[in-house]
């Protein structure tokens, strides 16, 4: 589908991450689904590897 045609059709939006975008679209009555996701922090490698051990076993 050409990009211009996409915006002529009814938009169904999946918003991944920041909830603010979802709220704005919802206020504009756009059909939106919000997926609460964010990348894992990479600031603490030792603790993250310990977390992995709890998740894998």
């Amino acid at each position: 589908m050409k990009l211009n045609n996409l915006f002529k059709s009814e938009l169904k939006v999946l918003n991944i991450g920041l909830e603010g975008f979802y709220n704005d679209l919802k206020q504009q009555k756009t059909d939106t689904v919000w997926l609460n996701w964010k990348p894992r922090s990479s600031s603490n490698k030792k603790s993250m590897s310990l977390l992995d051990k709890l998740r894998k076993k």
Binding site: N44, K46, S47, L50, L51, K53, L54, K57
Partner: peptide, 17 residues
């Protein structure tokens, strides 16, 4: 302090894994 949680997760892995 984050250290409390880091030490706790380490002890948890030691105990259960």
């Amino acid at each position: 302090p984050m250290k409390c949680f880091e030490d706790a997760i380490e002890a948890f892995v030691e105990k259960y894994v």
